[in-house]
Design a binder for these strands. Structure first.
Lengths: 169, 169
DNA sequence: CCAACATAGGTGATGTATCAACTATTCCCG
DNA sequence: CGGGAATAGTTGATACATCACCTATGTTGG
């Protein structure tokens, strides 16, 4: 004990700011989307990924990879979207355990209507408020943190070893 | 139609990076917390806010203000925390409709154990990877975006009017 | 061929977040 | 004082996220 390096003023300002910004921002974007369309934010990103494909379809594991979602989350969400007619599931000819998630006519219409308002909001609250330099810093920070997370995956696949000694001094 | 300014390469890189980073980061921090303690991330921030107070108590509306949570979310979450003995609700002498949320002995113990591991993870994945300059940019960006969100609150408090004509051009 | 294993995906239970009501006080103004 | 209006907080329904577990198919080495 006593080895913990708490955050100093500057660090805390950055960290709390980031957390708070993101919470408020996502709440706002979600509400904007819900008001302007019948899509939730998760619906939106799923539809973006699908309509980015030339044939409007992806295997669930690919879709999960693109979005960074785990399979279970994806499966549940796709089920809800199927129920609302935004996507369908189709059988995969090559691999009988697999399937495709395919955007429907209705799904395309929905996202085409929702996208302008959403992008507009993203600009209004974020992009258009920042300088190009700030945007680049954000992108770099994201890359750095995502790398650190990926590295942590391999370094600590085991839970709670005796590894704590390192920074205790 | 046609009036939408889509994101260019640089903007998209920043925006997608930010979103992706945050999703992955929060997932990781939540899991780390769940593994090392019996606290969820929301539990953690509630307990931090309460233990920041000299008497370990706050009115729900104050707590909601600090966290940026709406009252309903807070009420539900506090109920779950009460059920687990982390906090209690007490009556407010001054205002009979109100109450206090008070951290318990058990709640204090829980956060004191959880905090070092959490701060350590925040450092490992974020703070210690970034330069002081990057930290400052993050803090500035957060301030800017939060201001934009606050401004948007007043500008558009009404939902669903006939106001659609504005951005159609 | 077939036993072990990995991969693709789905399911049910539980915890969390949001919305739309709803109750109970307090405030305030006539 | 009395009757709105604002404020403090709760509740129920629904959507979303995660976990642990489960099934089915494919793959591979003996």
């Amino acid at each position: 004990m006593g080895g913990t390096r708490w955050l100093d003023e500057r660090e805390a300002r950055a960290w709390r700011g980031l957390q708070h910004m993101h919470a408020q921002l996502n709440a706002r974007l979600a509400r904007q989307l819900a008001d302007d369309s019948d899509l939730s934010y998760p619906d939106y990103v799923v539809l973006v990924a699908l309509t980015d494909q030339p044939d409007g379809r992806l295997r669930p594991f690919e879709l999960g990879g693109v979005l960074g979602w785990e399979k279970s989350r994806l499966s549940h969400h796709v089920s809800r979207m199927v129920a609302r007619g935004l996507v369908t599931r189709e059988r995969c000819p090559n691999d009988n355990r697999g399937s495709f998630v395919v955007v429907t006519r209705r799904g395309r219409t929905a996202i085409e209507r929702a996208a302008p308002g959403h992008v507009d909001a993203v600009r209004r609250y974020v992009i258009d408020r920042l300088t190009p330099e700030q945007l680049d810093v954000l992108a770099d920070v994201a890359t750095t943190v995502l790398d650190a997370l990926a590295a942590g995956d391999e370094a600590a696949p085991e839970r709670r070893g005796g590894t704590a000694a390192g920074d205790a001094a």
